[in-house]
Every structure is written in structure tokens, then in C-alpha cells.
Design a binder for these strands. Structure first.
Lengths: 207, 207
DNA sequence: TCGTTGTGGATACGGTCGTATCAATACACG
DNA sequence: CGTGTATTGATACGACCGTATCCACAACGA
């Protein structure tokens, strides 16, 4: 074997370059050559570690999903354990909103992928699966909370969750369009949560 | 003068072809040649009536805005005059949601434009201006209604309106992604409106 | 009728794209 | 130390892009 390079790390490097381009200049500006230039390597290297452009783009979408997952878990661990339903919703939905510059860039790239996936379902076919799973999970949480009396039974849990998720997505869009800051969006989201789930920022149980 | 052809109508025809491509195959599939083929004319004709590709794309965005405007006015006239604030919100926000197949296609095209405008602000610079104007207008309406006691003073009107607009946009996205039907989205939106503005579907005054 | 002019067909140019090919390098290992 | 293989440089190919050019034709004013 020759130079022995870490493929995993190489691909991560190139994927990061791809997302940098996608979030600043758009997905239509992403070409093999541009990714190579952004990463400071030759075109051949990009070809070598991602045989297809398709493979390259897929990698970008996977990385975006991983980053969102990381952000949720990071926020959750920062909040501790034994969280109330309200806190869980706050964490999960708040993780969707772009809070800092990096998550804003990621949301931009995500939006670009989303737009092309709407008319080219082959790319990011599970881009539909993921939101559905999240909706199911949150709905189950809210249902249990309502049955336990920990949350006001304001209405159909699935409808409430769907509305909250749609709100979070809409707020994200407005932040990306610089109509609102991330803080303003977070405030609006919390305000909406106050309506559906009282008990702001509390913990479950007697505490 | 030669054959004497209606430029206005020609351009409308080509613009419609453009939007048909954009809403079904995405904005990245829009090329001069594709628009020509979709419209059943030669490439030269597209060049002739739209000197630039830029001019062509601008025309598409303008047409989309016009269609949305037409839809709002149509819904408004169908509902009659002397509308309550609740009815006005219902009409305006409901017009954003894709109700039939055509408005769904338009929303798809709109989303495509929105995505590229996020990273290329030169296209659709007033794509930000329009939502802001709508937010201002709705906020003014809600403020007056709250002062007249026609609507419960639930909170800051601007925040309420921003949340409703974000909800409508998020619901639209979920409809486009086939997560929800247009009817379901409309139901969720109405449910949210019931919270902020009571008086469902009524008229202002003693009626 | 003739010439002027609006309309559009045919084709070409330079550029970028994704992908393929061929060779040169450089290192691990027998 | 050789050697084979993983890595990568250089370059080319065909396709499509936006745009430009040249020319044919048709109709209207004079």
C-alpha cells in the first residue's frame, strides 16, 4: 500500500467543503471542480473518494442530518435528565431553529437540499421519513403527558405537534430570509409552546 | 411591420412554460432550450422575447406573485364585503396554503425561487419585501381589532401575526412534501386562528 | 410594387459540466 | 531492495449551457 490516507477523514473534509459551498453560494454552485477547489485538492481526488456526483451530494445530506442530530443531543445533555415534556419540546423544536451562525449555514444548505428533493425525490428520499418520525415521536410524548395530566389536553396531540413543527420550520425560513433574528424566532416558538404546554422550563415530578 | 404578434401574450405563454418546468422538474431544469421545447417554439423565439435568461427568470417570479395576488383577491371577493378580522385572516393565510393542484404547483415553483434567492439575493430581491409588507398589514389589522375588542388581546399583535405567517409557510412546506394534504393543513391553520381570534367565520357588526 | 422592418430558423462559439483514461508517484510489505 | 498497489496529476471527451450571428421570410407603408 502507498501513502495510506484515512478515507473517512478525507470524505468528511470534502463533504464539509461541499456544504460550505451549498450554504453560501447554493446547491447549484456545487460542482466536482468547485468542491475540489474549496477543499484545496485536485478534481481527481474528489472523483476518487466520491465516484459519483450523486454520491457526493448524498454524503452532504447525511452529514447535515448528523449535525442536526448532534445539536439536539448536545442541547438535551446540557439540559440534564428528568426533563418535563415542555422542556423536551423546547429542546427538540429549538434545535431546529438556527441559533448561531453555523446552524444558520446548515439550515441554508438543508433548505437547498429540500428544494431540489421536492422535484427530484431520488435525492433525499428519507428527507420525508425523518420529519415523519420526529412528528410521531413528539406526538407520543404529548399524548402521554396529556394522559398524565402533565399537559393541558388542549386538543388532538397529533394536530398540535404538526402545528408546532410547521411553526418551527416557518420560523426557520424567516430567519434564513433575515426577516427575523434567531432570538426573535426562539421567543415566538416559546410563546407558542406556552399555549400548548404550560409548565415552562420545569422538570417532571414533585421538584 | 411584419407578422404582427402580441408580445404580451407571447411572453405570458413562455412564462407559463417556464413555471411548468420549474414546478415539475425544478428550477435547475429550466434552460432556454427547455422552455422553448415546453412551449413548442424554437430557442430563437425565447431569445427574442426574453433577451436574457435573467429576464426570463424574473418574469417567472413576477407571474408567481401575480397569481398569489389573484388568488387572495378571488377568495376575498367570494367571501363578500364587511368581513370580520377573523375572516380576513382566514382568507389571506388560507390563500398561502396550496388548496388545489395548480396552487400546489405554484407553491413548488415559489419554493424553488425562494431557495435560490437565499444564496443569490439579486434574484427576487423583493421576495423579502413582500412578506414584510404582508406582516405589517396583518399586524395593523389585528391591532385595530384588539383595540375595538373584536379580538381577544392575547399578546403582542406583531408576534401573533409572525407566528401565524410562519405557521402557514411551514404548513405549505409540509403539503409540498406530501406529509399532509391541503385540507389537513387548512384545518390546522383554522385551529390556530381559533386561538388567536375567536369569532369563527363571522362578520363584523351586529350581524 | 418595392423596400423597410418585425419575426424567427439555423447554426456556431466559448465555457462548464460530469465522467473517463492513462500515466506517474509513493509507500507498505515480502 | 524490489514490487505491487493505493493514490493522484494531467488531460480528454461528449453533452449541455447562455449567447451571438447570419440569413430567410412575411407583411405593411409608400
Amino acid at each position: 500500500m502507498p501513502k495510506r490516507v484515512d478515507h473517512e477523514e478525507r470524505r468528511a473534509h470534502l463533504t464539509a467543503a461541499l456544504l460550505r459551498i451549498a450554504s453560501t453560494r447554493g446547491l447549484q454552485a456545487v460542482s466536482m471542480r468547485e468542491v475540489a477547489a474549496e477543499a484545496g485538492v485536485s478534481l481527481r481526488v474528489v472523483q476518487y473518494y466520491f465516484t459519483d456526483k450523486r454520491t457526493l451530494l448524498d454524503s452532504g445530506l447525511i452529514e447535515l442530518a448528523a449535525r442536526l442530530d448532534r445539536r439536539v443531543k448536545q442541547r438535551a445533555s446540557a439540559a440534564g435528565s428528568g426533563l418535563s415534556v415542555r422542556a423536551v419540546f423546547d429542546i427538540v423544536l429549538g434545535a431546529i431553529l438556527p441559533g448561531d451562525e453555523q446552524s444558520r449555514l446548515d439550515a441554508l444548505a438543508w433548505t437547498a437540499y429540500y428544494a431540489v428533493a421536492l422535484t427530484d425525490p431520488s435525492l433525499g428520499a428519507d428527507g420525508v421519513h425523518f420529519p415523519n418520525a420526529l412528528e410521531d415521536w413528539l406526538t407520543a410524548r404529548l399524548t402521554v403527558a396529556q394522559q398524565d395530566g402533565a399537559a393541558p389536553a388542549a386538543g388532538d396531540p397529533r394536530t398540535e405537534v404538526a402545528a408546532l413543527l410547521a411553526l418551527a420550520n416557518g420560523l426557520t425560513a424567516s430567519v434564513l430570509g433575515r426577516q427575523r433574528t434567531g432570538e426573535e424566532a426562539a421567543g415566538i416558538l416559546r410563546h407558542a409552546l406556552d399555549r400548548v404546554l404550560a409548565d415552562p422550563r420545569g422538570r417532571v415530578g414533585p421538584g
